[in-house]
Simulated assay, not measured.
Amino acid sequence: MVRSIPNLQSLDLSKNKLRSLDFLAHADLPVLSWLKLSENELTVINETVFLSLPALTYLDLLGNPFTCDCSIVGFIQWVISNNQTQVVNAYQYTCSFPLAKQGSKLLDFDFQSFWMDVNFLCFISSTCLVVLTLLTSFIYHFLRWQLTYGFYLFLAFLYDSKKRKKEAPHCYDAFISYNVRDEAWVYQKMLPVLEGEQGWRLCLHHRDFQPGKPIIENITDAIYSCRKTICVISRHYLRSEWCSREIQMASFRLFDEQKDVLILLFLEDIPAHQLSPYYRMRKLVKRRTYLSWTQAGGHKGVFWQNVRRAL
């Protein structure tokens, strides 16, 4: 509307509920000298609006609900420093927001504190930059080899993870770790059900270990070439040195791969206090559920179904 009257000299827009004056910045009003904007809803004034009115000599903003924060600092500075435009009754303008400053004079607003905040922010930023530079120099000078070593360890971990994903399928479904004195139970009770009826591929040391190879290598290869390890635990098992090595290796794999690779099967009821000397076994029993042959009673079918589910 105002673009069509470029020779406009006086404009009264009071009591129009205006919330912004941005439209004046785009209007072509080169000779506008008298502007009344009293009793509107102007909270923030952008001083650049008045810079687009080169002939402005009279301005009335009385009765507007000004917000006294950092957004109005530019306007206050323009009012104080401007020698061309007379801002009528500027010392009567009051703050309406925030509530803590309600009723205080607009020109009494202490905007210097905002510049102090800016200076403080610059101080904090420069201090952080200096500390970061010193810390980087210290790490490079004293800890660079440790960081390099850690970096290559991380690369090795990533390589190992990718390699495991590309590994061939396991040769067996389960490695059976048992003591030789429990061999009769394994061959007479376990194998007919797990291999004969359920069809699992089991690895047993008397049958599947490679002759001439060191025992510890056979144990390691058997545990890592099977999806699971079943430990057939009895009092004889706990006292066996090689059985201890087998469950130790299976525990290492459990920790290393973070997968459910270990199944505990108790042939006897062994109280927890009797497991105390065998710290690793007691720790596993406290953290993991296990199967008990003696508690199966007359429900052997349910017991073997639980083994099947665990596999």
Rank of each mutant, 00 (worst) to 15 (best):
P65D: 09
H299E: 14
D221R: 07
T136D: 10
S137L: 15
E257K: 13
S14M: 02
T148D: 09
I219W: 04
C226H: 06
N16S: 00
A27V: 01
I45M: 15
N306H: 11
C243I: 04
S20V: 10
I5H: 08
F75M: 05
A222W: 04
E183R: 15
R19K: 12
L194K: 00
V131T: 14
A174N: 01
E197Y: 06
R19Q: 14
V79D: 08
S96M: 11
T133G: 13
S240H: 07
S4A: 11
C226E: 10
K259S: 11
L238N: 11
D269V: 09
R309N: 11
K17E: 12
V31K: 08
L155W: 08
L147V: 14
E183G: 07
L53N: 07
N179E: 09
S96K: 13
I263H: 04
I124T: 09
F255I: 07
P6Q: 04
Q248H: 15
P211Y: 03
I270R: 08
D28P: 00
D117S: 11
K36M: 01
H141G: 06
A184M: 02
L202G: 02
F66T: 09
H236E: 15
F142K: 14
E241F: 06
Q210K: 15
S177T: 01
F157D: 13
L191G: 00
L18K: 01
